[in-house]
Design a protein around this nucleic acid. Structure first.
Length: 221
DNA sequence: ATCCCGAGGG
DNA sequence: CCCTCTGGAT
């Protein structure tokens, strides 16, 4: 690694440390917005959350889990009945298909229990790194990586923490500059901040608590 | 019109 | 790398 690059990484680490300190005060109980601590329910809720708000996911999950309490029940579910229940979360056909095949795999390979290793989770149908990291962090408390969703992606770019567009590359870069004990809370804080302040369209830069650390501040004011 | 706590497939 | 899948909120 070149000297210049190492210096950049050190600067980034310092800047991230300050950003994290401010956000921790602003969002003291940053944790997953999906209300399920149970690994299985968190997994299903996270699959449902693609391109859809957590409020809407939390709207359907009570009836969903009453109807299908475990992986076995989902594995044997009727596709169109499942589709009707999750319709309001969008992408419902793909999600229903993914959830059923995911649960079939859980029943066959893991006797219905959610594995706690990222290599295993990512192999499940419909589960990518984002979903896997949410489940590992939210339900198992394991910092196996960093959740990169559209909010984390957008804020990382605006804050100058990563120049990449590929979520896997962004995760890789973030892991280098963020202390491991902040991996789980970091994404949640960015997601909260991304929804409340640093929105995609009209970011509220003037009321942003970390604007002095943001290279994009001038672009929006 | 445009965006939302994505993943699979070409 | 791109595209598609979907309803709902703003």
């Amino acid at each position: 690694m070149s000297k210049v690059k190492k210096q950049n990484v050190d600067d980034l680490r310092k800047r991230v440390k300050n950003i994290i300190e401010i956000l921790e005060r602003e969002y003291p109980d940053a944790k997953t917005a999906l209300i399920h601590k149970n690994p299985f329910q968190l997994l299903i809720a996270t699959i449902l959350s693609a391109q859809c708000t957590d409020e809407r996911v939390n709207m359907v999950t009570p009836v969903l889990f009453k109807q299908y309490p475990d992986a076995k029940a989902f594995a044997e579910a009727n596709v169109s009945e499942l589709e009707i229940i999750i319709k309001s979360t969008g992408f419902y056909r793909a999600k229903a298909k993914n959830i059923i095949s995911c649960c079939k795999a859980l029943v066959e390979k893991y006797s219905g229990k959610v594995p706690n290793k990222i290599e295993d989770l990512v192999k499940l149908p419909g589960v990518g790194r984002k979903t896997a990291n949410v489940v590992l962090g939210g339900a198992f408390g394991i910092a196996s990586g960093i959740v990169v969703d559209t909010h984390v992606k957008r804020l990382s770019e605006r804050l100058g923490l990563s120049n990449n567009t590929n979520p896997d590359k962004i995760e890789e870069e973030l892991m280098k500059i963020i202390p491991k004990n902040k991996w789980i809370s970091f994404s949640d804080m960015l997601i909260w901040h991304g929804r409340k302040v640093c929105q995609a369209r009209k970011p509220k830069c003037l009321e942003c608590s970390i604007n002095s650390y943001c290279p994009s501040f001038k672009n929006f004011t």
